[in-house]
Amino acid sequence: MDKRNLKLVPGRNPGESPDPVPGTDSAAVSSASLAMPGTSRAAAILPLELVDVGLVSGDAALLKEINLAFGGDRTSVILGPNGAGKTLLLRICHGLLSPTTGKVRWRDPDLAMHPAAQGMVFQKPVVLRRSVEDNIRFALKACRVERALHAGCLAHALEASGLGPLAGRRAMHLSGGERQRLSLARCLAVQHRVLFLDEPTAHLDPAATRRVEEMIALIHEDGTRVIMVTHDIGQARRLADEIVFMHRGEVLESGPATDFFARPGTAEAAAYLRGDLIW
């Protein structure tokens, strides 16, 4: 998929919209975001740094001394086999889990903790028992997006996600792929600064996966910093600008995706890319 060819909704392209970036308390930050056409709105809260992060459960060390920094406006993919600790790491980044050791630092911790600043899409899509558009409205309200912006954000999300014709349908009646697109549509509406995605296509068929991947690329193009987890090598190749490769709770390597796929730096990564069973 060529992300450069993705079509954004007219009037909502970064830098073109007259609307302030929703969900920000600080007018200065909104202005700063608007003053950077085409750049990531995540700049105000990034880098996200993990310093010596570890997670222990009982006798098991689930994550071991993770040191990482997420900055810029790239799409990062955390790659690795099942049980590598990818999802745990993502949950720690988003604040759903606290590390046993080490620290998670945001550039602007107060702004980063605003519900609109960072969002997360889960492997199993979470939808409320309401219509598609009411689900998006709920997200806008929960993330404290200014009410005057709701109609525009809703229209943008419905059009960009292709869910417009299903706007009035009960979300519980959607297919798995449509539900996941609704999860992403909520993020499109809120325009999070950073979005964490936990294997969002794990249960989807190729056609639904393609549509979800198109939406992820669109969200990235829309100015959101995307950090996602997958064990699908093909998906990582399609979406990643940079790769964090994990194995048995450790980050074995991280860097540009092109370098990783051309010249994996560890035997485990090379074996994983070959399709060997490395667990």
Binding site: H94, L96, P115, G119, M120, F122, V126
Partner: peptide, 19 residues
């Protein structure tokens, strides 16, 4: 079903209960 999504939105226990 909703706990992690609510925590992701920073929705507290009381408003979460009403939802």
């Amino acid at each position: 079903d909703y706990d992690e999504q609510f925590r992701s939105y920073r929705i507290g226990p009381l408003p979460g209960t009403f939802i």
